[in-house]
């Protein structure tokens, strides 16, 4: 039901590297899962029905900055795999020429 090309596209979208072996088993698993959930297509539904859960409503808050203590800032930065001073370091994105 799902092609290798489709699976590769999904993997690119979700930033996951797949080996050839992964692809083979994933296609098999996808087929059995999709065959199962596809039964839902037989259910007569009003498609304008809104998906809601429980007693939930929108919650708003003022758009203001909350300060973080220097210790917490340090803790947060320390979790980054690579940092330079108070910045999180990443590879250069734009080439020079």
């Amino acid at each position: 039901m799902i092609t290798v090309k489709e699976l590769e596209h999904l993997a690119t979208l979700s930033r996951i590297k797949l080996s050839e072996e992964d692809k083979k088993s994933l296609i098999k698993e996808f087929d059995s899962i999709l065959a199962y959930v596809d039964q839902l297509k037989k259910v007569p539904v009003k498609m304008d029905a809104e998906g809601r859960v429980g007693a939930v409503k929108n919650v708003m808050r003022p758009d203001v900055v909350e300060s973080v203590s220097p210790e917490d800032r340090e803790r947060l930065l320390d979790e980054a795999p690579d940092r330079e001073g108070d910045f999180i370091a990443v590879k250069k994105i734009i080439a020079q020429d």
């Binding site: 839902l40 297509k41 259910v43 498609m47 029905a49 809104e50 998906g51």
Partner: peptide
Amino acid sequence: RANAVRRM
């Protein structure tokens, strides 16, 4: 579709 059935 799943969300609609969820409501049902």
